[in-house]
Amino acid sequence: MAACRAFTRMPRYYLNLYNDVDVVDEEGGEFADQAAAEAAAVRSARELMAEHVMAGLPLDLNHRVEVVTGDGTVVSVLRFGDLITIKGG
């Protein structure tokens, strides 16, 4: 049996998505810190944009993911348009 991991509580952040519909994160996730939560939000936004592109759907650069703490404070807003670079347009 593997040794039990040290049982440290990591802070919980909620990643709310505002794109064609609002998708509130009711579960949240444990992250080492706010930067880790923001990194997850950036990955999520890019993944969603990538799927839109692959499906031939238009991208709305004003869509966003918000990082929210357990008490409802919005600590970071990640706008899709700020997460991609387009050249030659």
Binding site: L15, A41, A45, E47
Partner: peptide
């Protein structure tokens, strides 16, 4: 990502 899961479940 979990956000994408949430969006897709919705």
């Amino acid at each position: 990502t979990s956000v994408h899961v949430n969006r897709s479940l919705r």
